[in-house]
Amino acid sequence: METDNMEKIETPSAAEEKSKGMAEKDIKKTARLQLVGKIFVQIGLYLFLTVMAVIVLFPFYWMLISSLKSVEEYNALRPTLWPEQFVWSNYSMIFDPTKTGGLDLGRMFLNTVYVGIVSTILSLIVTVLSAFALSRLEFRGKNALFAALLATMMIPGELFTVTNYITVVNWLNWGNTFAALIVPFLVSVFYIYLLRQNFLQIPNELYLAAKVDGTSDLKYLWRVMIPLAAPSLVSITILKMMGAWNSYIWPKLVTDDSTYQLITVGLRELGTRLSSNASSPNFPAQMAAVVLVTVPLLIVFIFFRKYIMRGVSRSGTKG
C-alpha cells in the first residue's frame, strides 16, 4: 500500500530528467527500506504471538503427556517431553473406586451431566418466558422491574451464598439432593437480559399479525421467536452447561455424599488423595482425570466457538 502511494507522488513530477532519476532512486530506496522494516515488524509480531501461544498451550500439552506416562517415568528426575510408552490404564484406573481412595468418579461424571442437562432445560424455559414478557408484553411496572433485575447483577455472588446455604440446607433440608444443585441457579438475570435484547430485535409487527390470526402467545413464542432467537439460546445453553461442569464452591458446600457430588469436587479430592500418599503419589492418574474433565469442554468450544465467544464478550466474568 505504501509503495502505491509513492508511485502516485512520483508520476506528476515534471522536473528535469536528472533530478527525476535521483528522486526515483531515493523513493525506491525508502520504499524498499519501509518494506524491509515492515517485514521485520511482521516477523517480530509472529515471533511474539508464537511464544505467547506456546505458553498458553503448554499446560494442555503437559496435562496430556503426563496422563499417559507410567508413575516411574513421571517421577524421573528430569521429566521426559514425550511418554516412552503410553500407559492407557491411567484412564481406566480413575474409574475404579478401589484405586482412587474410594472416590466414585464415574458416578460423579454422570451426576454432572444430569445436573447440567436438567438445569439447562429448566433454565431455558424460565428464561424464555421471562424474556418474552419483558420484551413483548405491556404491563405496569415493566421498566422498573427490568431495572431492578439488572441491579441485582452488580451484587457479588458470595453475598448470596451464605443465606442460600442456610435456606437450602437448614430450612429446605436439601443437603445432598440434586435440587440443591439445580434450583438456586435456575434464573440468571444475565441470560434474561441477553435473550430479551434478541427478542426486541424481532419486529413487533410479526407479533401483532399473529394476534390478528388468533395465534396463541405460546404458539407464537415456539414457532416464531424461539427459532429467530436460536443463536442467543445456543449461547445460553453452552454457558449454562459450562457453568454446571465447572462449578465447585456451591456443590462442595451442599453435598458430601458421592451419590450427588459433581465432578470438579471429586477431581480436587482425587488430587489431594493421590498426592498425599507420600510413598507413591500418582500424578499420571490425576492428570488423566484432569484430561477427562477438560477435553469435553475443549471439544464443545471447537464446535460452538462463535456462540461461546459472543456470549462471553457480553457477560464479563467467568462461569
Binding site: 505467547m52 501461544a53 498458553v56 498451550l57 503448554f58 499446560p59 494442555f60 503437559w62 496435562m63 503426563s66 459450562m242 461442569w245 465447572n246 465447585y248 470438579t264 477431581l267 480436587r268 488430587g271 500424578f283 490425576q286 492428570m287 484432569v290 474433565v293 477438560t294 469442554l297 475443549l298 464443545v300 468450544f301 466457538r305 461461546i308 465467544m309 462471553v312 467467568k318
Partner: peptide
C-alpha cells in the same frame, strides 16, 4: 488458541500448574 484457557475448569488446570 488464545481463547482456550477460558473454556477450562479452574480447578482442573490449577492441578496441571501444580504438577508443572
Amino acid at each position: 488458541i488464545f481463547f482456550l484457557p477460558y473454556v477450562t475448569n479452574s480447578i482442573a488446570i490449577g492441578m496441571v500448574f501444580m504438577a508443572m
